[in-house]
Design a protein around this nucleic acid. Structure first.
Length: 254
DNA sequence: ATGCCTCAGCTCCTGAGA
């Protein structure tokens, strides 16, 4: 079974690339973030043609998430139960016996800002909910755009970007607290190339110079860890003519 | 260097992203 996550920065613009990528990488589940569209615009027909059912949770202009799957998805939940949120950031469902959560974590803009406070509150809300979800669903995958780096290995310039957004100790504390619930960073379960990133700034030839961050993650529960076979970041779509600034991350389970 | 790209929207600039 293969699962993947991809922040596509507008599904309107990126739909052809999503379809191309799925044709080349026929994963069982794909979580999308930053649809930037309302549900009435969601391309159900094109995805059905490609062999995927879809559940979406969109909104106007910003945010928006979806779960695509080959097999039926049941028990679909939108956003974080117990955490009141105006923004469409989370969608979860059961697919083939696995609880899959796709999430678009808040950016946070700048430490000390109102958006940073919202990010921290959101992270605590997520953690409290995921703790309960793990009890109900031991086989759980939490994947998406976390907008947080684990450590310096995830940052192209750890000195220059020290304590800036995505790299603050507060954010990393919350990420480790999620791990402490009984989750594992699937990417680091395997030998990876140095300077592996999942996002590169559009500006200043960020991708060409590999000035990036690893902020898109797939966390898997204790029960799934023995089944993990590989986890890779696919940089190929970042080379497209009008790419998303993020690359997809893919997990293979035995 | 409160910018550099890219996208959406009450669109010819602004807000937000990361």
């Amino acid at each position: 079974m293969k699962l993947a996550t991809w922040n596509i920065n507008s599904l309107t613009v990126r739909l052809p690339q999503v379809l191309d990528w799925l044709a080349a990488n026929p994963v069982d589940v794909l979580a999308l973030q930053e649809l930037k569209m309302t549900d009435d615009k969601f391309p159900f027909d094109a995805l059905t043609q490609a062999g995927y059912q879809a559940h979406c949770f969109g909104q106007k202009t910003y945010n928006g998430v979806a779960l695509l799957s080959r097999a039926p998805a049941t028990g679909v939940i939108r956003n974080i139960p117990g955490f009141d949120d105006e923004l469409a950031r989370v969608i979860s469902a059961d697919v083939e016996g696995i609880r899959v959560i796709g999430a678009y974590f808040p950016n946070g803009q700048e430490p000390g800002s109102e958006k940073f406070d919202y990010k921290m509150a959101w992270l605590k809300g997520l953690r409290n909910w995921v703790r309960e979800e793990l009890k109900a669903h031991p086989k759980l995958v939490l994947m998406g755009d976390y907008n947080i780096t684990f450590d310096d290995a995830d940052v192209w310039d750890p000195v220059g970007l020290k304590d800036t957004i995505h790299c603050t100790e507060e954010e990393r504390y919350e990420l480790r607290a999620l791990i402490a619930l009984g989750l594992h960073d699937a990417f680091r379960l395997f030998k990876q190339a140095d300077k592996s990133y999942s996002w590169w700034d559009y500006r200043d030839f960020g991708f060409r110079r590999n000035r990036g961050l690893r902020i898109d993650h797939i966390l898997i529960s204790d029960a799934l860890k023995p089944l993990a076979k590989s986890c890779v970041i696919d940089r190929t779509p970042r080379k497209n003519e009008r790419p998303s600034d993020h690359a997809p991350v893919m997990l293979e389970l035995l």
